[in-house]
Design a protein around this nucleic acid. Sequence first.
DNA 1: TGTGGTCTTATTGTATACACGAAGTAGACT
DNA 2: AGTCTACTTCGTGTATACAATAAGACCACA
Lengths: 224, 224
Amino acid sequence: MTRPVEIRESPTARDRAYDGIRAGLLQGTFPPGSFIEEALACEVTGVSRTPVREALNRLAAEGFLDLHPRRGAMVKPLTGTELRDLHEVRLMVESHAVRRICREARPVPALLSDLCDQHEAVSADNLLACVDLNRRFHQAIVAAAGNTVLVQVFDNLQANLMRMSMLSLQSGLGKTARIEAEHRGLVAALQTHDEAAALALLDRHLQPLPQLFRGLPGQGPVPG
Amino acid sequence: MTRPVEIRESPTARDRAYDGIRAGLLQGTFPPGSFIEEALACEVTGVSRTPVREALNRLAAEGFLDLHPRRGAMVKPLTGTELRDLHEVRLMVESHAVRRICREARPVPALLSDLCDQHEAVSADNLLACVDLNRRFHQAIVAAAGNTVLVQVFDNLQANLMRMSMLSLQSGLGKTARIEAEHRGLVAALQTHDEAAALALLDRHLQPLPQLFRGLPGQGPVPG
DNA sequence: TGTGGTCTTATTGTATACACGAAGTAGACT
DNA sequence: AGTCTACTTCGTGTATACAATAAGACCACA
């Protein structure tokens, strides 16, 4: 039985470059603080400099990289304060979405339950897959609010949210079983449009994350 | 007496292309719904296709353009629903910033008053300047909240916010004198960390904007 | 031995040539 | 006369060559 989700590589060179570099960023092939030279990225992804540059620009716009003119692309180190700020904003966005869904009694897409099922099926040590399913779940909640701009805003956070999610799983803070259970609870609350319960569940679901950066000096980058 | 702020054109070709195309987008040289061909953009900005492509990619990431593969860059038409969504999100972000400033009793930067002064000094029919000052004012408020991620999120909205601001001024809804007065009131409330007053003023300040898209069918693009 | 300057080299910024694909048009056949 | 097909043309996608700049190393001089 082949896996239902085939990772077919994109036909365009730019997307291949983007996928390759982003995977390297998430998996630590390109460590935070280091510079990614275009020639190296070309070797890794197998395309020429033009699509590589476009991919680097996109990754910079998404917050993975800092572009230094005439210097290159530095892998942006995630600092404690940045994680804290990121968490605050994601909570603001998702809470807003939850409120809108409940108050307007919007239908909850079946996709949410599907993603929970997939989450249950996937192996717990497949970190990349878990991170991706988690991302799609929260993305679907925001999308269910029916505000395209809000979705776009949330998408712009995805880069660093995925890194934070990766850190959480690697540190052992996030257990996929618990995460999946909490996701199901959240879906149930949304389906009954119970705003208070949904907000509480969301808050509780994201509660462990601040432990990642609590006690950090703030400026220091997070190891890993 | 020369102006203190020289608009020196950027030394890099990419930024010249970006500035040129963006100005054209805001001023209507490239009408919504039309396609911008790279060759045309090259002629207008005087640089070659490479920096033009980078500029187009950036503008697409900022929400000005929709990139159709193998088709080109379409100037994204602002629909009624999009304006409504945008307004909802910007209110969410700025309200969050105001709350943080007041609750944490953060210092209010002098830049805010400076911008009010500049707003008072500038000619009311210089639409581009007014839009830019307005943008910088609201940006400064978000920045004063001290959350870098929130600032980044707000920056990502700027493209369409500026278009909305332009529409508001052109339609006569926004009077620069009133805007400037409300800005000063908001600054005063923030300085005393009066959360309720600041939130009310912010809400009132942004109140006229929904008139831009109220009554619109939603799907239809906004004229102008 | 330390410091300053210059030269080299490596890497980014830009331009352009080529490839691929899509869309429009014209012609032929039904 | 209408429709389908093939060809042409135009525009994007990609690769590569060239230009400019900044960093680093090496040498000379104090």
